[in-house]
Simulated assay, not measured.
Amino acid sequence: MGMISTEFYWTFLCFFMMLFTLPILLHIHWLYDDHEKNFYSSLVILLYYLPTYFAIKVKDRKKLLPTAEWFVRHRYMLAGAMIALNILMIVNSVIRLVGLWENVSVSISLFSQNIVVTCMLVIVIMYIPISIFFHCADVELRFSHLKSTKLSKKQWLVLFGFHTLLAALYATLFLFDGSSLGKEELVLNFRLVRCFCQVLNILSIPMSYQAILLWNSDNLRFKGKYPNTTRNWTGLMKKNPDGTWEIDQSPEDHNISIV
């Protein structure tokens, strides 16, 4: 992947991270009662920013350099986290509504399910900004795809077919009359979720594309500073049969130049 497309992808991720907070905040704010919404809304903000702050501090303190393994994992996991967020927002809303409509015994039986969904939602909310940070902030050593890495026609069909299927499933939410929910906050949450799921599905296509590119990649190009020096360091990483990555020592692919 060329430098222009890489910079564009980083810019896209940064804008997404800044705009991502508001829909999640509104989802939580409208879904819970007045005495709960302020607490949960504040908690979402803390969960969104504090883990990223601590990740930055740990990275700087221990002077951790990015690795090819984590480069690959973050792109796989970010694509999965985007899909999981959509599903969890819908499930979280459904559990909340069923808990309000049904009797006490049913509500108690849903309590354990609600805990599981809430924990998963918390993990996703915490992970997405951390992943985006590690996508964009590794200035010491940066990895990129080779320009020769492409998607096959079958993979293009799978990519757009999968997201089209998700869009069709999310579109079924528009068949439901949200005004029948009665409570204004629940109606607003329902309208938010069904629209945000479609937007998030579209915005997650670049993440899925990146994940498939990495699936096809047997080599990665890296560029940065040689550890503990000021020398420029460029070269290739190659993937071993066991899935690990190592520097390709071929002279034509590996180069160290002094600044």
Rank of each mutant, 00 (worst) to 15 (best):
K183G: 00
Y48C: 05
S109R: 09
Y53H: 08
A55Q: 08
E7C: 07
L25G: 09
I247N: 08
V193I: 15
D248T: 05
E184N: 14
I45G: 08
F39K: 15
F176T: 09
Q155S: 01
W101C: 02
L169H: 00
Q249R: 10
T149E: 10
M1G: 09
Q113C: 09
R73W: 11
T230Q: 15
L31A: 13
S148G: 01
Q210V: 00
L25T: 09
A81M: 15
L50P: 02
R221M: 11
L78T: 10
F160N: 07
I83M: 13
I125H: 02
S257T: 11
L78H: 11
I130M: 12
L97K: 06
T164F: 12
V44Y: 06
I256E: 12
F176P: 00
I56T: 14
I28V: 14
Y48Q: 06
S152Q: 01
Q210N: 14
Y127P: 00
K183V: 14
M237E: 04
L203T: 03
W30D: 12
W10G: 08
A79F: 06
Y40G: 04
F15S: 13
Q113K: 09
G178N: 05
L200T: 06
L43E: 05
A211D: 11
V116A: 09
G161C: 07
Q113V: 11
E185K: 11
K59C: 07
V117I: 14
L165T: 10
S107P: 00
G99V: 01
A55E: 10
P23E: 03
G178E: 03
I247V: 15
Q249T: 13
I128Y: 06
T118H: 08
V44C: 06
R231C: 09
Q155N: 00
L26A: 12
M207L: 15
I4D: 15
G80Y: 08
F71D: 04
M207V: 06
E140I: 01
F16P: 02
I28T: 09
V58K: 12
D242F: 04
N92S: 15
